[in-house]
Design a binder for these strands. Structure first.
Length: 748
DNA sequence: GTTCTAGAAC
DNA sequence: GTTCTAGAAC
């Protein structure tokens, strides 16, 4: 768009002499060209070519008009059967609400959004010397920035029948043509046009998990998909994205953010993680085993529960145990409660809880990192009760993860399954492990019925709780080990897996090697298969050059790596030789601090697998690796959060990395670093160039490869604050304390 | 990826 | 005058 010839909506719509869709009420939502198109009112009488108009700023005989005057004028025109076009800076929902209300039930309310780059807007405003709105010179930039901080894109849920987004002059022209062509009885289809549903476009990690419906979602033109998806598909996408986005952060930040919203505080002022309590004790929530469908005697069961709890509480450090049942009238719960009190068991470390075990945190506010499942011997979903509920709530991820650990379970045994971070139970409830446990069965309709043999039954039930609590202890121990920064592997002790659990490759040592085989990355074998190995040594038909290790194919295109770009590759090939920088190696991935961190905390999770240089190389067979990297990144984010609860993390990949060897960035969203120096640095983490790990996994699993975003345009995009989206002319201004969303400018 | 630096922008 | 960007070299 030509900056010298700013688009004036006044000019634009003064050309619209006939806009005759009966009682179409247009609200023009203008934030980008704010001061160029100061609020003007146009009244289009139906079936007439006469245009009445009034500016909010000039409605009162040349003086600034008030909102009340505008509303009155609009209501009056509507009453007269006219179509009304309101041209006004309706930045937020609240400001628009009164106008939308004018539409009532019979009048379609449309919105046209002129969403132009803020930089353009500011430069225009600054150049302008005289303005109806008493806004002149340099103050304009401050106003624009301040307004942009508040802006909320309109949504159909506010009462709009149709919302059209215009990103440039051509979009505006199209819009103009559409409305110009309307006849008296014509109508326009409802929904979003020109841009996706605002919610679906939110791509900021920080905003993502908040599920904050009102989050402003501005995107620069290059980031906007100009397709016009159907409304239903948009809604589906919206729902999907809110679920998906919540996975992108650690559950603790998510919950903290929730608290923050409750308090109604400004996002920008307090970072979402600030309420994180780092001393949340590890907690196992477990249902009463065998007393429901397996019809085990409640008295006997409650004795065993209390005994075993007492036995283990001392061994579990600060960990807590919680017996959970759905119903308030639960007999087993009251029995256990009573007996635990009699035995003076510490009620802070062991207590009972009434609620849904799959919604302990979201509905009960009870944070449990591990839950037990009263499983069936096949370790399959279905059946009823707790087992069905947990498998359903955890999604298919649990089934897959369970299969990796064990095929079946004998009565009296338990098996811990790490919950993939893709599971809603992980993202929503903060559950990291599900421990499947199988108790004795006294129900003749179920397998392995003991037919009231309570001598065996009690022994089996004792074993079941012993095994359950041991598994839990093992999880706690490993997590503690992890947070101490140990580079030992995270697998539980072999003894935890062998007895009564038929693993695919038990015992544990085999399991570990199996896991390594699975995401294989055997350096001699090469992840990408043999094809690239062959290609790597034949001349490229386009360049005639030979590919070597330093000049190899990256995805479908030739990408050469300079010597300076080989650092990560060297570490990945020999992580043991770089113990000084490598924080941890496990499952063929290495974790290290970024040499030039772009935020307070900035880690890289590096694959040690040769042949995977960048995202373009990633294919379906690397899904397991991507998940491993993601899980490792999440664990480290959690660990870092324990050190500083105010941090917020985002996990993702650069569309086109500068350094060879696939690496996942785990980066805190403060961007407080002297190493973040230029536009490329900023945009590589704050535009679609940065591909969220969860999105990459989703892309690869559904399309077989990752979606890469155009490097050039994204990296040279205007600088916008990742929180409030305000635009800034350069990096120092962007990073300077004022005017940012943390401390909104009050001048003007 | 960083560093250096010419020259544009302020 | 200083600040900042962007391109080349590494």
């Amino acid at each position: 768009m030509n900056e010298d010839e700013p688009l004036l909506v006044n000019e634009l719509f003064s050309n619209v002499l006939v806009i005759a869709a009966a009682l179409v009420f247009l609200i023009s939502y203008l934030f980008a060209v704010i001061r160029e198109v100061y609020g003007s009112f146009f009244f289009y009488p139906v079936n007439q070519t006469v245009v009445e108009f009034a500016l909010q700023d000039t409605i009162g005989n040349g003086k600034s008009g008030t909102k009340g005057q505008c509303l009155k004028a609009a209501a009056s025109a509507l009453k007269d059967g006219k179509s009304v076009f309101i041209d006004r800076c309706n930045l937020d929902r609240e400001q628009r609400a009164e106008f939308v209300k004018l539409g009532g039930t019979n009048i379609d309310v449309h919105s046209i959004v002129l969403d132009l780059p803020a930089k353009l807007c500011i430069s225009r405003s600054v150049k302008r010397t005289e303005h109806e709105g008493s806004l002149q010179g340099g103050k304009a930039a401050a106003v624009v920035n301040r307004m942009l901080q508040k802006k909320e894109l309109p949504k159909v849920s506010e009462g709009f029948a149709r919302i059209t987004f215009c990103q440039n002059e051509s979009d505006v022209q199209t819009c103009l043509n559409i409305y110009s062509a309307l006849g008296p009885l014509d109508t326009l289809p409802n929904g979003y046009f020109g841009q996706k549903n605002p919610d679906a476009k939110i791509q900021l990690g920080i905003m993502k998990f908040l599920k904050k419906a009102e989050v402003p979602a501005t995107n620069s033109p290059s980031d906007v998909n100009s397709s016009q998806p159907s409304l239903s598909s948009q809604i589906a996408e919206e729902n999907y994205s809110s679920y998906r986005h919540s996975e992108n952060v650690t559950p603790s930040t998510q919950s903290a953010a929730k608290e923050e919203l409750k308090e109604g505080e400004d996002l920008a002022v307090h970072s979402a993680g600030s309420h994180v309590s780092s001393n949340d004790a590890p907690t196992l929530a477990f249902p009463s085993i065998s007393t429901s469908d397996f019809q085990f005697n409640h008295e006997k069961a409650s004795d065993i529960i209390v005994d075993k709890v007492q036995e283990f509480l001392n061994k579990l450090g600060n960990a807590r145990l919680v017996l959970v049942d759905l119903s308030h009238g639960s007999k087993i719960l009251s029995l256990v409660k009573e007996k635990a009190a009699q035995k003076h068991i510490n009620s802070k470390k062991f207590f009972t809880h009434v609620g849904d075990i799959t919604r302990l945190y979201s509905e009960g506010g009870l944070r449990c990192n591990v839950i037990a499942n009263a499983a069936n011997w096949r370790l399959k979903p279905g059946g009823g009760g707790v087992n069905a509920a947990i498998f359903k709530a955890a999604g298919p991820a649990l089934e897959v993860a369970t299969k990796e650990q064990a095929q079946m379970l004998h009565p009296g045994n338990a098996v811990a399954v790490p919950l993939p971070s893709t599971s809603p139970l992980f993202s929503r409830e903060g559950i990291t492990h599900v421990i499947h446990v199988l108790g004795p069965n006294m129900n003749p309709q179920r397998p392995n019925c003991l037919h009231n043999d309570y001598i065996t039954g009690c022994e089996v039930l004792r074993n079941a709780y012993t095994s359950l609590f041991q598994e839990f202890a093992s999880v706690v121990k490993n997590q503690a080990k992890f947070s101490e920064g140990s580079d030992e592997n995270l697998l539980p002790n072999s003894s935890d897996y062998t007895k009564g659990v038929e693993t695919k490759h038990s015992p544990n040592s085999d399991q570990k090697s199996k896991r390594e085989d699975e995401h294989n990355c055997d350096r001699s074998k090469k992840c990408k298969g043999s094809q690239d190995e062959v290609e790597a040594n034949i001349p490229d038909s386009r360049t005639g050059k030979k590919h070597t290790n330093d000049d190899k194919i990256c995805g479908s295109m030739t990408k050469s790596w300079g010597s300076w770009a080989q650092g990560l590759y060297r570490i990945a090939m020999n992580p043991e030789r770089h113990k000084d920088v490598v924080l941890e190696t496990s499952d063929n991935v290495a974790v290290l601090n970024d040499l030039y961190p772009k935020a307070k905390r900035h880690l890289l999770v590096l694959t040690c697998c040769e042949g995977l240089d960048c995202l373009a190389d990633v294919r379906k067979e690397h899904l397991h690796l991507l998940r491993t990297m993601h899980d490792m990144g999440m664990l480290w984010a959690q660990k870092l959060l324990q050190e500083d609860g105010s941090l917020i993390f985002r996990l993702g990949y650069h569309s086109v990395p500068s350094m060879r060897q696939l690496h996942l960035h785990v980066i805190s969203q403060d961007f407080d670093s002297k190493h973040l120096k230029n536009k490329k640095h900023w945009n590589s983490f704050n535009t679609a160039f940065f591909r969220d790990s969860v999105d990459v996994i989703e892309d690869v699993s559904s399309h077989g490869k990752a979606t890469l975003r155009d490097e050039e345009s994204l990296l040279s995009m205007e600088l916008r604050c990742h929180r409030c989206r305000s635009a800034h002319p350069n990096i120092p201004r962007l990073k300077s304390p004022l005017p940012t969303c943390r401390a909104p400018s009050t001048s003007v």
